Simulated assay, not measured.
Amino acid sequence: MDTEKVTDRKVELEKEDGHALHKRLSQVDPEMAAKLHPHDKRKVARSLQVFEETGISHSEFLHRQHSEEGGGPLGGPLKFPNLCILWLHADQTGPGPSVPPVYGLEVSDVSKWEESVLEPALEIVQSFIQGHKPVAAPVKMPCNEMENKRSYHMCDLCDRIIIGDREWAAHIKSKSHLHQLKKRRRLDSDAVTAIENQSISPDCDKELKEKGSPEQNEKELKSSV
């Protein structure tokens, strides 16, 4: 008997149009749809897959995970105890709150990899395995707890959907947005100028003089009678 091939539903969904998928998700899980960009078909398809296979919306599924003991804003309880993170220094913002300790490893000089990276990393990991506090101090990561990574923004000027406070702040400072803003202001200025020119044009004044004021027209009508 031939074994029936099991098709990954998520793969099937990703073949469909992104906007159509997002519209379907907004009908069954509006909360999650508001957090995902229509172009992010992978995540949209995953949320639809969760709903189709469990009958529970993806957002509700995550809420239940977060409410479990040991859960938090980033997800459900951690799978393993005594966790830590080894953070290779880079020019980017660190992880948010509710994460294990983060330890920095300097990688500027790769010729000193063993003494600067490998040995400190092994020492930190060994300390966690043995239940001891590492000699190295964890890195204090800057984090804005008020930042919403899933906020929904619609830029009517650029006709784009932006997800996340940081992404929105970057978008309104981007060259493309500023170009559209400058273009819109120029069009608005031209429209105002055209209206002003039309209101004071000689042809318009001549037409008004020929028609006369309402009082003049009334006097002329009475005199003719």
Rank of each mutant, 00 (worst) to 15 (best):
E196I: 11
K209I: 13
E145C: 00
H19A: 10
G94C: 02
G94P: 05
S174D: 05
H19E: 12
K183T: 02
P95I: 07
E119V: 13
I129Q: 11
C155S: 09
R186H: 11
I129R: 00
C143D: 09
S59Y: 03
P77Y: 00
E115Q: 08
V139Q: 15
S176R: 10
H171A: 03
V50K: 06
D17K: 07
H37V: 05
G131V: 01
N197C: 11
E31L: 14
H39Q: 13
P120Q: 04
A194L: 12
W113M: 06
K206V: 13
M141D: 10
S201V: 05
Q130H: 10
I162P: 03
V11E: 12
E4Y: 02
E60C: 01
G72S: 06
D29L: 04
L105K: 02
E210L: 11
Q92D: 06
L25G: 01
P214S: 13
S98Y: 06
H179A: 12
S199Y: 03
H153G: 03
V135L: 08
D159S: 09
E207C: 05
Q216H: 06
A20V: 14
K79C: 06
F128W: 08
E123F: 03
E68Q: 15
E115W: 05
K209P: 03
L181P: 01
P73I: 11
Y103S: 04
P95D: 05
I163R: 05
K41I: 00
K183I: 03
I163K: 05
E167N: 12
S59W: 07
A121F: 07
W113N: 07
D188F: 01
H177Q: 08
K112P: 01
K79H: 13
L208P: 07
